[in-house]
């Protein structure tokens, strides 16, 4: 039974239901006029998520036996975390500094590992595009220094 519950599809449906329910509670607390539409939307959300959850449980139960393919641990969470950390860091460190390691890591994870292409790729894709937009096209990206150079 527990194995059924921790299947990723079931977990996704469960998470959706919990999120919808949580937001509904907020919506029912707000003022009538502003929260009218959110209440309707979130109610539909919850009903749908519940139906999906039931559906996933029924579908998953007989298939429980299919043995999971032994999968090597994928470094995908690492890439996701890197993207998120870089995004958060931009507000305080400016655009260039968080983005360089992110690009380097992306290249590395996508198997560009020889030093020259890795370094050149990071400088051109990360630094070059940043320079193009920030300094040449004057589309200002978040900056670290007050005068906006970096």
């Amino acid at each position: 039974m527990l194995a059924t519950l921790i299947h990723p599809r079931v977990l996704t449906a469960l998470a959706l239901l919990v999120a919808g329910a949580g937001l509904s509670i907020t919506a029912w607390q707000g003022p009538e006029s502003a929260m009218l539409v959110p209440r309707i939307v979130l109610t539909i959300w919850c009903v749908m998520a519940l139906a999906i959850l039931v559906g996933e449980l029924i579908r998953q139960a007989p298939r429980q036996r299919t043995a999971k393919a032994p999968r090597a641990r994928s470094p995908l969470p690492l890439l996701m975390a890197a993207v998120l950390i870089a995004a958060v860091a931009t507000a305080s460190l400016g655009f260039l500094i968080p983005v360089l390691p992110l690009v380097a890591l992306t290249l590395w994870l996508f198997r560009i590992r020889r030093p020259l292409p890795l370094v050149l790729g990071t400088i051109v894709i990360g630094g070059g595009l940043w320079f193009l937009f920030h300094h040449v096209l004057m589309i200002r990206l978040p900056a670290l220094l007050t005068n906006g150079v970096i």
Partner: peptide, 9 residues
């Protein structure tokens, strides 16, 4: 890798 790095950027 370069294509994906570019897309991220």
């Amino acid at each position: 890798g370069f294509v994906m790095g570019g897309i991220v950027m």
